[in-house]
Amino acid sequence: MTTTTGAHPTRRLILQGAASVALLGLGNLAFAAPARAAANDKYPEEAFRQKGEADAIKALYGKTAEPSDKVKLDAPEIAENGGVVPISVTTTLDKVSSISFFVAENPFALAASYKIPDGTIPAVANRLKMAKTTKLTAIVEADGKLYSATKEVKVTVGGCGG
């Protein structure tokens, strides 16, 4: 008798504990996502460490993007030197807060992420390294949502050599 009544509270306690941990976890996620998306100054170390594109997008933004023809990605069809591929993106979307570039088959997918404060025009040009022929993705964060454009770039000499 004493053993069964003794066991019940413990089990309940454990269950309650687990539930509150789960709730806390959810709460953290819910708070972390907007904080990450906002124009804070912190370097997104975690996102840059992700190998796959989907993981990197998730680590950086905590959500997924939908393709949009309002995002214009400009990159060469063929890059002779994968070490220096000129890539630019422009968009007609309003309320843009950030623009990021992902190279699908690079050792680490996230290449660069730019914060676009109010008053800055949502267009960026830069030069990236590409290990091999692969898909290039630009993601524009506008009004809290993610929009993407992709383009396949053929690389004749990879950007990983010396």
Partner: peptide, 25 residues
């Protein structure tokens, strides 16, 4: 006194990086 552009870069940005953007104000 205001940030107009912040770039977070990984290793995939080319050597001797180049960047271009525009802002208002």
């Amino acid at each position: 006194g205001k940030d107009v552009f912040v770039a977070d870069w990984g290793t995939a940005v080319s050597k001797d990086p180049y960047v271009k953007f525009s802002f208002k104000g």
